[in-house]
Structures are given as C-alpha cells and as structure tokens.
Simulated scan of single mutants.
Amino acid sequence: MGRPRTNDATVKARLVECATELLATRPQESVSVRAVATAAETSTAAVYSLFGDKKGLIGAVRDKAVASLFQAVTAVPTSEDPLADIYALATAYRRWGREHSHLYSVLFGGVQSFTPSGTVGTGDPVRPLIAAIDRALTESVLDGEATSIAVSLWVTLHGLVTLELAGAFDAPTAEAAFSSTILATLRGWTTPAVFRSLRHDEPAP
C-alpha cells in the first residue's frame, strides 16, 4: 500500500496528532520531522508541504490545544455570581486538562507555553476568566488588578492540575485539594465585606 498523499487533510490531522503525542512524552529538541512523519505513516515531504517546517508543525499543535481549551472554557455558562463563574471556569480548565492530557502537556510543558498576559485576543482561553474577574471587580466582589488576579488563579490552578496529572494525588485528595485551594485563592482577592460573608457562604462549585 502506498503512502497517503502529502496534501491530504487527513494526513495533516494525523501529523498534528502524532506530533502532540511525541511532544507530550519527549523533549521538544528530540522530536524530529522524520520521527513525526514515521509515526503518522507518511513522508517528511508531507510535513514540509503542509506546515513549512518543524516550527510550523509545533505551532499547529499549540493552536489545536489553545482552540480546544478555548472551546471548553467558553462553554461555561454565566450566572449572577461572578465568584461562582470563576470557580466554574477553573473546573472546566481542570476537566479539559484531565480529558486532554497530551494537549495539556504540550501547551504547558515548555512548547511555546501559554500564559495569561495583559494582551488578551478574541480566541485566548484566558478571556472568559478576565471577563469574570472584571465583572467581579465592577461589582466590588474582588479587589485588585485583573491581570494580577488572573495570574494568581492560573498559577494555583496550573499547579493543581499538573500535580494531578502527574499522579501526585488519589481521586478524593485531588477533589478536596482543588476545591479548598481555588476557594482559598478567591477569598484572598475578595473585598473585606465579601471575605467576611464567604467565611460562612462560599461560592457554590
């Protein structure tokens, strides 16, 4: 059986899939165009034809991960409680990481890693979080600067999910650690009045 055409959409998707798997388990520098092409059962010419070079292929993998995460977090409905919405977004992020561990490893494992920043594009996965934080600031629920709060939450959430995917927690411990740590981080940014109320009335998961 001959190798598939180098410009076929199916081949392109397979190359991205194989590159994702390799990048999730090996250092980036050790993943060659030939290794990806072999895993995808096609030729190196297909990689160069479809992506230009290795950098273009890695960019396609990252774009797939960003788009997938963006889809997951934008599917979270908005409620009247901005703190509950932020918690729900954190939950969606965690669920995505658990269900797409290869993509998570690529996106946050050193391959042109994604991090929240002051510039948020329309397809940026952090955009829904910034929007929820902005609403919480406007409603005097949180106190601080939106980007600083987003980074604080992301660092906490990223650490929790990374440890969970690495097998550091059993299931009950992971659930408890996620809930208590995210809520504690949120409390740390609340206004004094909201902080006092949250001691007895935390936002619902």
Rank of each mutant, 00 (worst) to 15 (best):
G2C: 08
G2P: 11
R3T: 03
R5G: 15
N7D: 14
N7I: 05
A9R: 11
V11P: 00
K12D: 03
R14K: 12
L15S: 02
E17K: 12
C18Y: 03
T20R: 05
L22W: 06
L22G: 01
A24D: 03
V31N: 01
S32H: 06
V33W: 05
R34M: 12
R34L: 14
V36W: 02
A37R: 02
A40Q: 01
F51C: 02
G52T: 08
A60V: 04
A60D: 01
V61P: 00
K64P: 00
V66G: 00
S68P: 01
S68F: 11
L69C: 03
F70K: 07
A75N: 10
P77A: 09
P77Q: 07
S79A: 07
L83K: 01
D85Q: 05
L89N: 01
T91L: 15
Y93E: 04
W96T: 00
R98Y: 14
V106T: 14
G110W: 10
G110I: 07
Q112C: 11
S113M: 12
F114H: 12
T119W: 15
T119E: 14
T122W: 09
T122P: 09
P125F: 12
R127A: 15
I133V: 15
A136H: 03
E139W: 09
V141L: 13
V141H: 10
V141T: 15
L142N: 05
L142T: 06
D143V: 07
D143S: 13
D143K: 12
G144D: 07
T147M: 15
S148K: 13
L153V: 12
L157N: 01
L160I: 15
E164R: 02
L165M: 10
A166G: 06
T173E: 10
A176T: 06
S180G: 02
T181Y: 08
I182T: 09
A184C: 06
L186T: 01
A193R: 15
F195C: 11
R196G: 03
R199G: 08
H200G: 07
D201L: 11
E202S: 10
P205C: 13
P205M: 13
